[in-house]
Design a protein around this nucleic acid. Structure first.
Lengths: 180, 180
DNA sequence: CCGCTCCACTTGCAAAAAGCAAGTGATCTC
DNA sequence: GAGATCACTTGCTTTTTGCAAGTGGAGCGG
């Protein structure tokens, strides 16, 4: 996509995109979550060219999302998800939920996931505050801290949202007389 | 990326990827969640070429993730998120959580989000069953139904995971004698 | 032990997308 | 009406994809 230093950005989303930021990778990980482990199975299931699959799988191994297991006899090896890779399934679940809500007509066939034990749907994913309030995009603020530090030491990041929330007019159209 | 019919896939993840499946789009949406609405602000914040930004924004408008508001005077218009667009913030939150957990050293500066009301971190996002159990990738099954139907009518989709869970050997390794 | 198949790649090449810089036209300010 | 800003376009180069065909090693059957 682009070679920018997303991998050094302080934004975790940028860093994530640096490792998994293309559609093929999402599809590979989705299949992996369902138990696909072999090169040819990914290839058949997703339908991408083998050279690209090779590149993606090797990158995912390089960043620790897959491990290669040579376990069984033969020349075939398996790509198995590490804990890091398995953790990504929350992201996939969120995407599935979004797609299900916004991208299907009522009469279209759709693949859902159910709890294997009970056969029921999982609870919807929502970002919630500690006190249980549901958090919308407007309800959150960006702050900066060190990764290991408690958030009490964090400093605000200046987003348009924050600017708008401050007293003194939001972005008073750069050529007007006086601002802030 | 590719022109495959992701937009018709029964998998909601495929369909989502069809609309938002590239890194630029994720970055645009992240910024939009923080209140960025204008062309030049996206351009400055993300640093992508204007022709590509144009293409992305227009696509996002076309699929109903952004609406153009001509509200304020001047030639500048605003790209504001629709409800569909705002709903995407759960996905971004999941990615942020994943990136934060796996992609930062302890001493690196990181951007986090906090609850604007309390200043505290949101609850971690996890996929949970109706009964509150945390669901791992192994704990879920894929089923197929119509989008409007209750899941009781759903039929299983044959994933490797399901095959492995069935009695009767999983994929009996075409040449070896006997296993299990 | 020699073809045969399967598997995970490579290689080569054409086509598509991204990246960059410069330009356009509309609107608003002074 | 000169100058600035904004949201694009256009043209061109570089990079990445997509596809088809080929490679090399391991197992198997005869």
């Amino acid at each position: 996509m682009k070679r920018r230093e997303l991998g050094r950005s302080p934004c975790p989303i940028d860093r994530s995109l640096h490792e998994v930021g293309d559609a093929w990778t999402f599809q590979i990980l989705r299949d992996a979550m369902h138990g696909v482990t072999r090169f040819t199975d990914f290839s058949k299931s997703i339908g991408l060219a083998t050279n690209i699959l090779t590149a993606r799988l090797q990158k995912l191994v390089a960043v620790g999302i897959f491990e290669i297991h040579e376990s069984d006899l033969g020349n075939s090896h398996e790509y198995v998800l590490t804990e890091k890779g398995r953790d990504f399934h929350t992201v996939l679940a969120a995407m599935r939920q979004w797609g299900l809500k916004h991208l299907f007509d009522d009469d279209e066939p759709v693949h859902r996931v159910i709890d294997a034990r009970t056969g029921r749907q999982p609870r919807p994913l929502t970002l919630t505050a500690e006190d249980g309030r549901e958090l919308s995009p407007e309800d959150i603020l960006l702050v900066r801290s060190r990764a290991a530090d408690p958030i009490e030491t964090a400093l605000p990041v200046d987003t348009p949202r924050r600017r708008a929330a401050r007293p003194g007019r939001p972005r008073p159209r750069q050529h007007s007389a006086v601002q802030d």
